[in-house]
Amino acid sequence: MVPHLSNEEFFTSLADLLSKTSQKARGSVFLSQKPLIDGVSNAPPSILIRATDGNTNAPNPKSESKDGKITKKASSKDKIKFSTVVNASDLEAFYTRYADICKAGMTGLKKRDRSKRKAKGKGGATKAAKA
């Protein structure tokens, strides 16, 4: 198990991950957070913040070999994941900087093309055929 990063190390790693993802033609960054509750104290809970690039080493069920067995392709890179714990007293300052880094990292990303999904949802077999 990888230990949690300090807040500064987390911000540096998150900025690097967002910049690498925006430079590639495709990719995802997943951000999650949850409270860390210890049943002992009545203090406000700390928050666990996680970031990952979404790469998994799980085999693709559609990539079967000729004999019908699912084979795991060799991945050239491993999944990047890191986390930090933020105390309740530091949350406001943390979220301010966190939002700034996320906004700065997302400027190079392009918006997903959802036109096919919208056309399909509106009875778009005819609309999709026309396009």
Rank of each mutant, 00 (worst) to 15 (best):
V2C: 11
V2W: 07
P3S: 09
H4R: 10
H4Y: 14
L5E: 08
L5Q: 05
S6K: 01
S6W: 02
N7R: 12
E8D: 09
E8R: 04
F10C: 04
F11H: 04
F11Q: 04
F11T: 05
T12G: 05
T12A: 13
L14I: 05
L14N: 01
L14E: 05
L14W: 00
L14Q: 04
A15P: 05
A15W: 00
D16Y: 08
L17F: 00
L18D: 00
S19F: 05
S19D: 09
S19N: 09
S22R: 04
S22L: 01
S22K: 02
Q23T: 14
Q23W: 01
A25N: 12
R26W: 11
R26Y: 11
G27W: 01
S28A: 13
V29G: 02
F30M: 11
F30C: 09
S32Q: 07
S32L: 01
K34H: 06
K34G: 10
K34E: 08
P35M: 08
I37T: 10
I37F: 03
D38K: 03
D38V: 06
G39H: 06
G39K: 11
S41P: 06
P44V: 01
P45Y: 01
P45A: 07
S46Q: 04
I47M: 13
I47H: 05
L48W: 06
I49S: 00
R50S: 11
T52A: 07
G54T: 03
T56D: 02
T56E: 00
N57W: 00
A58H: 02
A58D: 03
P61G: 03
K62V: 13
K62S: 15
S63D: 13
S63H: 10
S63N: 11
S63W: 02
K66F: 13
D67A: 09
D67C: 07
G68P: 00
K69D: 08
K69A: 11
I70D: 00
I70V: 07
T71C: 02
K72N: 00
K73D: 06
A74H: 11
S75Q: 08
S76L: 14
K77C: 11
K77V: 10
K79I: 12
K79S: 13
I80T: 15
K81S: 15
K81E: 15
K81R: 15
S83F: 10
V85A: 06
V86A: 03
V86R: 03
N87M: 12
D90R: 09
D90W: 04
L91T: 10
Y95P: 04
Y95E: 12
Y95S: 11
Y95C: 13
R97W: 13
R97S: 12
Y98G: 03
Y98D: 04
Y98F: 08
Y98C: 06
D100K: 12
I101C: 05
I101Y: 02
I101E: 05
A104G: 06
G105Q: 02
M106G: 14
T107C: 06
G108Q: 12
L109R: 08
L109A: 09
K111M: 12
K111G: 09
R114P: 01
R114C: 13
S115R: 14
S115E: 13
R117A: 15
K118V: 10
K118Y: 12
K120L: 14
K120R: 14
G121V: 10
K122D: 10
G123Y: 04
G123P: 00
G124H: 02
A125L: 13
K127V: 05
K127W: 02
A128Y: 10
K130V: 07
